[in-house]
Amino acid sequence: MIGRVVQYAVLFVATLFFLLPVYLVIVTALKEPSAITLSSTWQLPQVWYWESFVQAWTAFLPKLQNSFFLTVIATLLSAMLGSLNGYVLAKWRFPGANIVFPLMLFGMFIPYQAVLIPLFQFIREIGLGGTLWGLILVHVVYGLPITTLIFRNYYAEIPDEMIEAGRIDGAGFFGIYSRIVFPLSVPGFVVVIIWQFTQIWNEFLFAVTLVSSPANQPITVALAQLAGGEAVKWNLPMAGALLAALPTLLVYIFLGRYFIRGLLAGSVKG
């Protein structure tokens, strides 16, 4: 009995810890700028003020579009490549694959500060400096390790007998992929796409260094600049934070199961 009480007490306190910031964001975003004072931080707004969202929406709409464009293309490309790579590493192990795979995986853990300067120069040299395409390339490449890993582990579950059966039917490397492996990949793709979508949408370091002209800014950079500047009026950053969080939050709420699978796959074995 006491155990039960303690259990629910823990849950209650933890819920408070996780939800208080959410309450504060929503309440602040809905207050008039002049009604936001430090001492009345926690009170409900006296007048519900929706204008902040309108303002944040008009200011952030182009940045949200940038983020969508960037995220969708980079996610799909890295998922496709990851699927093919995973297929190769799971079913067609070429000589040296055992060495190559860990070398690939290391790429997903490196601190990007260690490649930032040459990367920056490289993107400029190939003529993609300051463009979203440059950022897409970077996200696709640095996304390869994780997408390859998830697909490789996923395809490892496909019995080798199925591949053998395909070969006996006369299918080759590509035939087996398109007729047997790819049709079975839908859950794998869902996991990878959700994972990459969240990662790329939320990314900041590459975005702030590689794409700094406001026309091409993704949402995270715009939000950091709005809040990091002389933000005396907190309603706007809070409304902006909600807008920036919404896409990944929706994905999480509706596809949470797959999101968690991607999370767990991040710790290598899955």
């Binding site: 900041f204 939000l223 809040a227 990944t248």
Partner: peptide, 21 residues
Amino acid sequence: TIFLFPMSLSFIVTGTIWRWM
């Protein structure tokens, strides 16, 4: 769901929120 949702947020969003907190 509640305990895990912050994982789906960007560090930038979290940072902005907690800066205010």
